[in-house]
Design a binder for these strands. Structure first.
Length: 297
DNA sequence: GGGACGCTGTCTGTTACATCA
DNA sequence: AGTGATGTAACAGACAGCGTC
């Protein structure tokens, strides 16, 4: 399987050298090699940067070369790519738009036709079937792309070209990879955001359910005559901030400890500075169990 | 100054293919 | 071996920003 892909990749790029050992290609003269070419990597330091271990190089070379150049147009140079193909819309709008000069359109059309013809003829030659082969980036290529994506999630044309050259890809392929990578990143982030919002929603629903229940309990208590009997008018209630005991209204202090209010309820006295206490104020009691609202017994 | 136009790069949705379970 | 699911390279169209006229 891998060998098949290897052969295919090489044959697509360099049909005339299909049977050649790919590892012999480093002997190719750079001046005659097609640029950008993965084989140029053998002549550049970046190749050793990518695959420093010589023992692993053999296999890595195979896997590296396996995935590259599937869609490459052998006759197109860097400059031509820069001029006409590296930008997605430079090709697309050039072909579909009606405002570019005829010369440019013809140029782009020619390039595209050449590309398709090459791809077609090679593919046909390869398997006699239809369908262009889809490029699969190698792990090493992906790693390098990921690395540069971490640094910059967009690239300028020069960076695309340089990275493409380094990896044996066209600037257009680098560009497409970055586009897709940005899309994947955004999708992931959207999923994370969705999950977060979902949890927020669940929490709020639960909180709402709890509050509704509390409201029901409060309503039930409000209707209870016994509760009314124990109630002290809120305006007369005070509580001690330190011990949180409910204090008596001013007049009750005069009655002394253990006094009974006019309704016959036991009064709790405090000498600390009283603070207003509103039983119906929502915030202090919201997160307490309903039993906390009951007067001490 | 500002509107029309063209170019370029990016985003977004889709398609087609490769791979895996 | 066939098949559906999944991942992803590549494509197509829309749009925004910018420069020029």
């Amino acid at each position: 399987m891998e060998n098949q892909d290897l052969g295919l990749s090489l044959s697509l790029s360099f049909p005339e050298k299909r049977t050649a050992n790919p590892l012999q290609i480093n002997s190719l003269d750079s001046s005659t090699s097609i640029s950008p070419s993965p084989f140029n990597l053998f002549q550049k330091n970046c190749w050793t940067d990518l695959f420093p271990s010589s023992d692993q190089n053999l296999e890595k070379c195979r896997t590296f070369l396996k995935g590259i150049d599937v869609n490459r147009v052998p006759t197109i140079t860097d400059d031509e790519e820069e001029a006409g193909i590296s930008s997605p819309n430079s090709t697309i709008s050039g072909l579909s738009g009606n405002k570019r000069s005829e010369r440019e359109i013809n140029c782009c059309e020619e390039l595209e036709i050449i590309e398709r013809e090459c791809s077609r003829s090679i593919t046909d030659e390869e398997d006699g079937e239809t369908s262009r082969k889809k490029l699969r980036l190698t792990k090493d290529q992906s790693a390098v792309l990921e690395e540069s994506f971490k640094k910059h999630n967009t690239l300028n044309p020069k960076q695309k070209k340089a990275l493409g050259k380094r990896l044996g890809l066209t600037p257009r392929q680098v560009e497409v990879w970055f586009q897709n990578r940005r899309a994947r990143t955004k999708l992931k982030q959207t999923e994370v955001d969705c999950e977060f919002l979902k949890r927020c929603c669940e929490n709020l629903t639960e909180e709402n359910r709890r509050l509704q229940k509390e409201v029901q309990e409060l309503k039930a208590l409000k209707l209870s005559p016994q509760f009314y009997m124990q109630m002290i008018p809120p305006t007369t209630l005070t509580t001690c901030p330190s011990c949180e005991r409910i204090a008596s209204p001013p007049y009750s202090s005069a009655l002394g400890p253990g006094s009974v209010d006019p309704r016959g309820n036991q009064m709790i006295l405090t000498r600390h500075g009283p603070m207003p206490f509103n039983l119906w104020a929502a915030s202090p009691v919201l997160h307490r169990p309903i039993s906390a609202l009951h007067p001490r017994s």
